[in-house]
């Protein structure tokens, strides 16, 4: 499977570069878009002075770097996950079902969103501009970013798989995943119960960013194990929901091409 994923990566990268100008515009466009928000936070922290509920400017920048790299990796390596709903209701899952590969990895990894390269670059640059260069911290940042990419994709799979049962859950799934991204860009401590419960479960912003940020700031093995268990649970849930939905798949006869 790894060999195939590597092949998909190279293949999609060459497909993206087929339109060089568009590729570069997307990458730099995303980079610049992210930079604009950092100025907002800089101004805010300058005005407030100090921190927001225990989050200093550097902590918020870590959230931004983690979110950018995690999201970017998800878009670059598992870019088809955002299209699962449309693939289901347009009946385009047929192609994947006819191939001798595990459906989910084959499905999500078969497309790359080139704009994701902008997020990846931005996440790395922002980390090295605002965070520690210590090797163990850099390693932790990379591991948490990869974890975020996988868990974020699993969340997408869960919500988009509802299309199997509801007919079309594209907008709902899009809203939820956008909310995950939106919440993780703010300090987790500013939210209080019962919203914290929601942000630990239905919209798992805490799992993808806040808890990793806490562990990054001060390492806690127990917390790390709890986080990993929760991540594994989400990944398993995504597989279970998708497989259950597959039995309800009704295909379709709409014309389609692979892009």
């Amino acid at each position: 499977m790894w060999k195939l994923l590597k092949k998909y990566f190279v293949f999609n990268l060459s497909a993206g570069m087929e339109y060089r100008a568009s590729f570069l515009i997307q990458v730099f466009g995303m980079f610049l878009n992210n930079c604009a928000f950092i100025f907002f936070w800089m101004i805010l922290y300058k005005r407030i002075g100090g921190d927001i509920n225990g989050y200093g400017f550097s902590d918020v920048m870590f959230l931004w770097a983690l979110a950018a790299l995690g999201y970017g990796l998800a878009e670059v390596f598992m870019g088809n996950s955002r299209f699962i709903s449309s693939i289901i209701y347009k009946g385009e899952l047929d192609v994947y079902l006819l191939q001798p590969r595990a459906i989910l990895p084959n499905l999500v990894c078969s497309r790359m969103n080139t704009a994701g390269w902008g997020d990846v670059t931005y996440g790395i640059v922002l980390y090295f501009l605002t965070q520690s260069f210590e090797p163990h911290k850099v390693l932790m940042f990379l591991v948490f970013s990869i974890l975020m990419a996988v868990v974020f994709t699993a969340v997408r799979i869960i919500y988009h798989s509802l299309t199997f049962f509801l007919g079309n859950a594209e907008q709902f799934a899009g809203t939820i995943t956008e909310m995950v991204i939106m919440f993780i860009l703010y300090p987790g401590s500013i939210f209080s119960a019962p919203s914290t419960w929601i942000l630990h479960s239905v919209i798992p912003a805490a799992l993808v960013a806040w808890i990793p940020a806490e562990i990054f700031a001060s390492f806690d093995l127990k917390k790390l194990l709890v986080l990993l268990s929760a991540d594994v649970a989400i990944i398993i849930l995504s597989v279970v929901v998708f497989q259950a939905g597959l039995k309800k798949y009704s295909s379709g006869n709409r014309m389609g091409t692979r892009i």
């Binding site: 293949f11 087929e18 047929d94 191939q99 692979r258």
Partner: peptide, 29 residues
Amino acid sequence: IGAVFGQKSQLWYHLPPSDSFDLLGSIYN
């Protein structure tokens, strides 16, 4: 088994067929 659904393509729209053949070959190990 192999299948062709006249209405659906298994070839990548923006790439030449040679690239799709190469990738499909890898999918089939």
